[in-house]
Amino acid sequence: MTRLIFSLLFLLSALILISLSLGAQSIGFRDWLAALLGQGDPVDRIVLWQIRLPRSLLALAVGAGLGASGAALQGLLRNPLADPAVVGVSSSASLMAALVIYSGLASTLPWAVSVGAMVGAAIAALFLLALSAARASATGLILGGVALSSLATALTALLMNLSPNPWALSEIAYWLMGSVADRSLSDVMLAGPLITLGIFVLSRAGRGLDLLTLGEDTAMVSGFSVVRTGRLVVLGSMLCVGAGVAVAGAVGFVGLAAPHLVRPFLGHQPGRLVFPSALVGGGLLLVADMVSRGLSGPGTQLYLGVVTALLGAPLFLYLIWRTQREHL
């Protein structure tokens, strides 16, 4: 496991450097290196440190949060198809962000969208915690989450339907497609600590998630509180996904795919997957953002959520095909 983590950290470092070298402004290698070291042309420094770096760090952080949440939720719900979107955390965060844009608050208070997304994630978390406290089974939690997700998606569609002007409609639509473009270091400072805390909380649930492999009875007799494990996963996911949606909008597939990409290397033990899935999730979103930048032209921006869905669907089909071959 240590070897895999070091390999992933090396890969991520390489991806960040590649990500920092890509962009609309062409910078030669020497100038790029000088700017990276805080020297050289001031314009290059601004491009590198104030435009590209926040973008890359946000892609890394948001992807890491989604990857860790996906792994922990799959372990808690004992379902390989679970991810933050399935249990309604992402869609609730998106709904509240859309509500802030719809109300016009976003134009006067720029941070209101982020706060709205966090509140949405918290509402979803409270709902899931209430279900968990009522001793709902894993299936009950999934069904409750699916119902919440459907409701939040329907209400978001209603907001778009009742949009007061085309500007608000397009703002909501673009927000829902997800992006890390044009973000600043203050966005990184908002999301980074919350996502780091979220991943830490999720990793605390590792042993409980491992024991849930044999069902709730075995976990309970082994001295682990299933309720506590559930709380850690829900709270950690709330922090990761809420902060992620707050700065990048809705980004799908990363939470679902990252744990599946880790399993061939580390096996299926859920507790061992959380941190490596965070690293893989960060890498996936960095790659998706580079693809998004590469395919965007002047006046046309390809949104991150669109790229993750376009890349994620075939990737996921490949994983299913490979899993089925393993069982033949």
Binding site: R78, D210, L211, L214, G215, T218, G267, H268
Partner: peptide, 20 residues
């Protein structure tokens, strides 16, 4: 017949008895 939700290895399963 306890459920085995993930196809972990035999050793990893036995190790679940020592997670304290």
């Amino acid at each position: 017949n306890p459920p085995i939700h993930w196809p972990i290895t035999a050793r990893a399963l036995v190790a679940l008895g020592r997670l304290g």
